[in-house]
Amino acid sequence: MIDDKSGIQWNSEDPRVQRLGTFFADFHPLQQPEEWVTYEVFHQRRRGEQHVHVGSVHAPDPELALVFAKEQFARRQHCSSLWVVPSSQIHISGYENEDMFSTTPDKTYREASGYRLRHKISSYKQAQLHESDR
């Protein structure tokens, strides 16, 4: 097969290339508006679970963002719902303020395991028992 434009002889193993007949061998760069905005994608595996951020897609509008998100993030794993949000609509706290999240190093008072009661109850019962013995 001979390319009309370049005159190059192609001996391709690829049947598609043999069928094409001609090559667009010229290089036409992508123009700025051909690059779409990004949408952040949130994926819910099953009803009742959280939507989890899984990545982003490029799309010209939300409707197509959902189509691309389905192809990109829901072709393998189970999915019950997707959200897409324009990246520019997400507000972030910024890592420069990361230290504001570390307050006191000991947070056991916020956890159930930080409250141990059984031994108190046991020793109280023990004491009661001795009382009644007397």
């Binding site: 700025q32 508006p33 990004t38 982003s56 509008d61 990246s87």
Partner: peptide, 17 residues
Amino acid sequence: IRQAIMNPQQSVTIPFA
């Protein structure tokens, strides 16, 4: 097809993560 669905008002944004 890219040109047919292009939105000339939009500008590029960088994904977050």
